[in-house]
Simulated assay, not measured.
Amino acid sequence: MEWTRGHVLGRGSSATVFAATSTSGDVFAVKSAHFAHSENLKKEQKFLSILKSPYVVSYKGCDITREGNNIIYNIFMDYMSGGSIMDSISVRNGGALSNLEIANYTRQIVKGLEYIHSCGVVHCDIKGTNILVEEKGVKIGDLGCAKWANQASQIHGTPMFMAPEVAQGQEQGFPADIWALGCTMIEMATGDLPWSNVDDPVSLLYKIAFCNEIPNIPNELCDQGKDFLSKCFVRDPRQRWTAKQLLNHPYIHQQFDDNNSNQTIYKKPINTSTSSPTSVLDQDVWNYIDQEEVPNSSSTLLCIERSSSSSLKIKQRIKQLASSKKSIMSKLECEKEESEKWVTIRMNE
């Protein structure tokens, strides 16, 4: 089979997503990474190949190609022509969704999470840029950070969407996805990121981990929406509502028709690419912390001054993790993405 690589749809921390067409005219998305750096992409391929749900991006296969001097690992998925939720919001003048739209999208995300969790999988990086839009609604995408619930592994994800227990380096289970769902609802309601009032990544992670605070619940949400968010933002993961419980919440317990797009903010295809930085928190980043010494204060936490050398190391590490990473696909990407130039790829026999 031959296929043609098109324009860039999005960039992650370790791979890039392109539009593509087959010789038969089928349109799909291809996510690519240099083979030497494709560990996360191979992991995503394994999860996508076993997850079959209308609320999770569909897997269509994988391949290895040689492009110039590069060996590239590719996985094929649904082409979600509306881009991500954040793409859809960005083309709006107001920059946010209505309560009905948020409820409809949230319902579909929760159904996707309930299915993923029932399979024993934790997504670990739920956020607006990983929720993809099509004419019928939304699907969960980007499982590059996913893990089995019973698997011990490094902490993954985007710091601003991390639950308190994740920021503390304790655990990253199903409840962490629910906290991140709440953060994604804030994005949909405001067009802005959660914790938008905190700029410094070091302060942010300490605030999430050790302050008895939650992100600001938007006034734009109706009362039922605010109550739904309060179930997502329970700081104790054991008390946080599960996806199965949230499916019965009145905010999303409405008669939505998944085959009807009347309540969906579907937009024309997005040609601009998006950046979605994801990071990995080393477990030992937090091991030096004696939590009893962390002050119980709502003020910005910069309480890592007990050891100047250790403090500097930790600060630098967290800032590296919280910052955008340059895509390892930079050599692959066309410098003139706007030109709509297509490249034919010869697949392996």
Rank of each mutant, 00 (worst) to 15 (best):
E2T: 09
T4A: 04
L9S: 04
V17A: 15
A20G: 11
A20S: 13
T21M: 03
S22T: 15
S24E: 10
F28R: 10
A33S: 15
A36T: 13
L41F: 13
L41T: 05
Q45D: 14
K46T: 08
F47K: 13
F47T: 11
I50P: 01
L51W: 03
P54Q: 06
Y55S: 06
Y55I: 00
K60W: 10
G61N: 12
C62M: 06
E67C: 07
Y79I: 08
Y79V: 02
S84W: 11
M86C: 13
G94V: 14
L100V: 09
E101R: 12
A103D: 11
N104I: 10
Q108H: 05
Y115E: 08
V121G: 08
V122G: 02
C124M: 04
C124Q: 11
K127N: 07
N130C: 06
N130K: 11
N130M: 05
K136R: 13
S153T: 15
G157K: 09
P164H: 12
E171R: 14
G173I: 02
A180E: 01
C183M: 13
G191W: 05
W195K: 03
L204K: 03
L205F: 05
F210S: 06
I214D: 08
I217A: 06
I217V: 15
N219Q: 14
E220A: 10
L221S: 08
L221W: 09
D223F: 14
G225H: 10
F228S: 04
W241M: 14
W241A: 15
Q245I: 05
L246K: 05
H249F: 13
Q254R: 14
D258A: 07
N259P: 00
T264C: 11
K267C: 14
K268G: 03
T274V: 13
V280D: 01
Q283G: 01
Q283H: 12
Y288V: 12
S299N: 08
T300W: 09
S307P: 01
S307R: 12
S311Q: 14
K319D: 03
Q320L: 07
A322G: 15
K325W: 05
K326V: 15
C334L: 12
K336C: 11
E340Y: 13
N348C: 02
